[in-house]
Design a protein around this nucleic acid. Structure first.
Lengths: 110, 110
DNA sequence: GTTGTATATTGACAGTTGTCAAAGTATGCA
DNA sequence: TGCATACTTTGACAACTGTCAATATACAAC
């Protein structure tokens, strides 16, 4: 089984009009996914692992949260399109979806 | 009376270590402030107004929310350090705190 | 199949959030 | 002083969120 990144807004940065209702509704979940300290640290750890990714078994330890809680946060990050996971045997390897980052970045810098 | 931007983390981007507990606790509220569609649009409107700022009376109209709700969201943005307000007679003029943006940006791009 | 390890889901609970109506505070002007 | 305008605060409510224990599912090895 394969856990993919969910689809998210693509056409944001080019407009010079005020943010529309739809645009903000697509972008907000990305920031919402980064709005929790545990998820920020998770995302940071995944990001550090680069394209190789990181085994989620290595993510449960350092954050002092239960395994279900970490699993829940990883799901939030996945559904926001920020990370993706691929299975390798028993393990899941998480990596960052660079594209999603550039969308958030496009909003922030202008 | 003067509504200022609240103090927020300053020393984030330079480290190459994993995000600490404290760092993530300081950064998360910034993303949390951007995690609501109405606030995203508010912030966008303020940002567009540049250094002149925008009168908050002009922010209540376009977003289809009650005036107290808009006031609440502006407070959240202020407390996250993303915007600041200065009073001019009866009006409040809102403008973006650029520095706060660069901190969020520093996290996103690396 | 059984057993063991890795991860996800469910259910529950306290705490937080977005929203509005109503009431309060601040400023300017007559 | 009184009134009008701009904004904030309070109180209430439904919806959502972070957390864990318990349970379930997926895969590998035997």
């Amino acid at each position: 089984m394969y856990y993919e990144a969910m689809p998210v807004a693509r056409s944001l940065p080019l407009t010079r009009r005020p943010l529309t209702d739809q645009q903000s509704a697509l972008l907000a979940p990305v920031f919402a996914a980064l709005s929790d300290p545990v998820r920020l640290r998770l995302f940071d750890l995944v990001h550090r692992a680069g394209s190789t990714g990181v085994c989620s078994c290595d993510l449960t330890g350092p954050l002092e949260r239960s395994q279900p809680t970490i699993s829940h946060h990883l799901k939030v990050l996945r559904e926001a399109g920020l990370v993706q996971a691929r299975r390798e045997g028993t393990w899941l390897w998480y990596s960052v979806v660079e594209e999603s980052l550039s969308r958030a970045q496009a909003f922030i810098q202008r």
